[in-house]
Simulated assay, not measured.
Amino acid sequence: MYKILVINPGSTSTKIAVFEDEKMVLSQTLRHSTEELAPFEHIFDQYEFRKSAILKFLEESGYKIEDFSAIVGRGGLLRPIPGGTYEVDETMIEELRYAKQGEHASNLGAVLAHELALNAGTKAYIVDPVVVDEMTDLARISGHPEFLRRSIFHALNQKAVARRAASEIGKNYEEANLIVVHMGGGISIGAHVKGKVVDVNNALDGDGPFTPERSGTLPLTQLIDLCFSGKYSKEWILKRIKGNGGLVGYLGTNSALEVQKRIDQNDRQAELVYRAMAYQIAKWIGKMAAAMKGEVDAIVLTGGLAYDEKYMVKWLKEYIFFIAPVLVYPGGDEEKALALGVLRVLRGQEKPKIYHEEAERWQRITSL
Rank of each mutant, 00 (worst) to 15 (best):
S11P: 00
Y2I: 10
I299F: 03
I281G: 02
S215L: 02
N177I: 08
P80T: 05
K196C: 06
R163H: 15
A110F: 03
E213S: 15
F68D: 01
A290T: 15
K336N: 09
A165D: 07
F40W: 03
G185R: 01
R164C: 00
G243N: 08
A289V: 02
G102P: 01
E271I: 13
P352A: 11
R79V: 12
E94K: 15
F153V: 11
P39H: 10
E94G: 07
L218W: 00
N119I: 12
S151K: 02
Q280L: 06
Q265S: 14
L257T: 12
G84L: 07
V200T: 14
L77I: 10
K261V: 05
K293S: 15
K239Y: 07
E334C: 04
K15S: 04
E48N: 12
R74S: 08
H356I: 13
A256I: 08
A17R: 00
K15E: 07
R262M: 14
P212F: 05
K196Y: 12
E103P: 00
I169Q: 11
E213G: 10
G185Y: 00
S69N: 15
E357N: 09
V181R: 01
I241H: 02
A337Q: 05
P9W: 05
L338K: 06
A191H: 08
E174A: 13
M92E: 04
M135G: 10
R268C: 10
Q101D: 03
N172R: 13
N244S: 12
L301R: 01
E95S: 11
A124Y: 01
I365G: 07
I365R: 13
L343R: 05
I365H: 10
S11K: 03
G216P: 00
I126Q: 02
Q222C: 09
A160L: 09
E175G: 09
